[in-house]
């Protein structure tokens, strides 16, 4: 049996008029993002929870360190970043868990869309439902802490570059712990050490601006972290998902 001969008509069948044409990678990506966004819209509580957590934990610090305005303004960048990071952490578990439990993940792995693209789509949806709301809430928190006016633009720039990295790295942790005993407790242990560089550079962007120093190098590092995580994290998360559905 000649394999070349046999495979030609098959390809024609799959791509031709008789069977529906397989959607491209981009179309698949878009459909998964839209479906996750629609799911999030129908379950608004889940997405709101992360922002609520962000605001609540940020509210605790003045009670812990006292309401002295200078001190609060000094720690504002750090508080915003640490609490945003914890809020993202809180939302990571559900990134893949429901899909894993109801069998959707199996079907997604078997779909014609490559698994790393699926991960990227889920990360995008996660960022749109978690990172973006945090981005909107962050200036409010910073304002309550009396962050000097120069800092806001850089705070937003740093969070735009930093929070997608948090979602990307978090996807690896969320994928690795699927089906684990105490999975929810494991995620922080796996993910928090990896978040440290984002935290350091995210805060130093704002600190540098407030000290009158150039923030550009810090922003570039945040961008570099994002660029490094963009191909590597989906790849690692896809490897983890593949063995999770076995």
């Amino acid at each position: 049996m000649s394999t070349v001969h046999e495979r030609m008509p098959e390809a024609k069948t799959l791509g031709g008029s008789q069977a529906p044409a397989m959607p491209g990678v981009l179309a698949g990506f878009r459909r998964i993002v839209l479906r996750d966004l629609r799911l999030a819209m129908r379950q608004r509580g889940d997405a709101a929870l992360a922002v609520l957590f962000f605001v609540l934990t940020a509210m605790l610090f003045p009670f812990g360190v006292g309401p002295e305005p200078n001190l609060l303004a000094r720690i504002a960048p750090g508080v915003v970043w640490v609490t945003a990071l914890l809020a993202v952490l809180l939302s990571l578990e559900r990134m893949f868990l429901t899909d894993y439990e109801d069998g959707s993940l199996e079907l997604l792995t078997l779909s014609p869309v490559p698994l790393s693209v699926i991960v990227l789509a889920k990360v995008t949806a996660h960022w749109l439902t978690t990172g973006l709301p945090l981005l909107i809430a962050a200036p409010v928190i910073a304002g309550m802490y009396g962050l000097p006016a120069d800092g806001y633009k850089m705070l937003l720039a740093a969070m735009i570059l930093g929070t997608p990295t948090l979602s990307l790295l978090g996807a690896v942790g969320a994928a690795l712990t699927l089906g684990a005993r105490r999975g929810g407790v494991l995620i922080p242990l796996l993910v928090l050490p990896l978040y440290i560089p984002v935290l350091i550079f995210g805060v130093s962007v704002i600190d540098a601006t407030l000290a009158g120093l150039p923030a550009r190098p810090h922003l570039l590092f945040l961008g570099a972290l994002l660029l490094a995580a963009l191909p590597l994290a989906p790849w690692a998360a896809a490897a983890a998902l593949r063995q999770a559905v076995q």
Partner: peptide
């Protein structure tokens, strides 16, 4: 899972080291 995590961690060790020095 541990093997994947070890590789991810290994890539991150120099990044973490560098950023902590920076900090």
């Amino acid at each position: 899972a541990a093997a994947i995590l070890a590789l991810v961690g290994f890539v991150n060790v120099p990044i973490i080291k560098f950023s902590v020095d920076w900090w």
